[in-house]
Design a binder for these strands. Sequence first.
RNA 1: GCGCCUGUGGCCCAACGGAUAGGGCACUAGCCUCCGGAGCUAGUGGUGCAGGUUCAAUUCCUGCCAGGCGCACCA
Length: 545
Amino acid sequence: MSKNIQEELVVIVERCLALVGWAQLYPEKVLLDLPTDSRFGDFTTNLALKLSKLLKRSPREIAAQLITLLEQEIPKTALKDSVSQIKVEGVGFLNFYLHKNYFYQQLNLILTQGQEALKLDLGKKRKVLIEFVSANPTGILSVAHARQAAVGDCLANILNFSGFDLQREYYLNDEGNQINILGKSVALRLKELQGKKEEFPENYYQGDYIYDIAKVAQEEKISEAALGDFAAGYILKLIKQELLDFGVSFDCWYSQKELAQSGKVEIAFAKLKERGFLYNQDGALWFKSSAFGDDKDRVVVKSDGSQTYLAPDIAYHEDKFARGFSGLINLWGPDHHGYINRIKAAVSALGHNPEALSIIIVQLATIYRNGELVQMSTRSGQYISLREILDEVGADAARFFFLMRRTSSHLDFDLEVAKKQSAENPVYYVQYAYARICSILRSSPGKFSQALNLSLLVEKEELGVIKKLLELEAVLNICVVTSDPYMLTVYLQELAESFHKFYDLHRVLGQSDELTQARLALVQGVKIVLACGLELLGISRPEKM
RNA sequence: GCGCCUGUGGCCCAACGGAUAGGGCACUAGCCUCCGGAGCUAGUGGUGCAGGUUCAAUUCCUGCCAGGCGCACCA
């Protein structure tokens, strides 16, 4: 909630536990939570309920004893002016109530420091690499990639804001079997364009875009052997542009082809062999992944001498560590979930801590249009692309919708709802609050500069707004811990709601000068936090709508 | 068969193991002489089934039922 007030309170509570001799009984870290309801104070803890069993005493009695101690200890600390009272409530919850002055101070901090006041230092500048999208350059991006792009980009924003030294990377599968098939697909379409139609195999790329590429290849007289690379390059350009239009950029596009040519695959193999995790069988080379909890060992070099996808991927992850990243985040589609054990095994076998690699499965989004399910299949080419979504609903609505549900949950994305400019559409609800604020601030030029008396903000709705502003920190904390940005979308809707409620009941302009200024300051505070949240989501902040 | 995800009012979704399960849509009744009504207020209505752990279960565990997705010497 505040810069550290929560942690400072925890320290004091733990000190009291030690004083009364209960610290050893309760070695866990004391947790102070935000209450489920504002009438239960500003922080709450179930400590007394937990201690009840250990001490064989009633929770309320324990809580009362702790409060006596806390009331002695808190006045000795810097928090003496911030905590107004501590109460036992319900079955024995210990609830902390903060003084209003504390909230005014925090609001003032936001007003004077802007977004700097909102930043966290959870990461301690730790170097983290987040790899996402990484779609093969064999077709334009699908809905699945779109959701990964939104989640990955937003998570990256949040981690950066929370003090991590973070880089975004796209792993480019620009060689191998699928590029060969892509080349052959283009070659066949080229022949077709020249009037020599042949049977088009089912496992080739069926989409119409293959014709487009074939036409360009024909004009540029690309040799048949080079068609695969040409097509991949062509598609990659489209992918990069789509991502850019979606507001997603990468620090690094990591080429699998270059990785293969660098000899790093062989070096990684040598390391695995030395450690005893590679062996030959049935004419193939196997990685002993079962030694690390995988269901079975995995082939890395097939009996025909070619590598499986796993081979360069092992080297790729070795290289991530070699580049100095101590935390790795991979966003994968649900079709890769069986691959997690394999790659974690590889990381372990190479001598790294598998915990350093965190793999997030981004569940699929199902697209509806006019209430009807839109079927998707990459191979047949009949699928909704990121491009179509961008054209139809725009980047703002698309990003917000992709982030609205837990990343691990399925998501139903109705294009019609996303297009609606009404209350059904949460993007507009949040953006509307922002535009409204801008409008109010426009209507009061020069008013918001004199000395402020924030303590005039005593209405329930005013304090509600301030408290909601200060919740951003806890929300970002949850996003970081769960590696999931979705709570931020929930929070922004709540913040917008608390602002709309305040706005409806209390006039900002036309009050006494002092009160108008205080309310303008409050509105300005909401603007700063809304802007911050929307920026982290990668969504525009319209001053007018 | 195995693995992952999901079952919350008529519909869509919330709820680090906590207090009276929140919000939106729809429906009903209200609110602009005034800062943006894309907003606000009030009302109706809900945890798939059966056990277990716990002071406390929508949340954790087991089984069942239902839906979605995935299970290659493909990438």
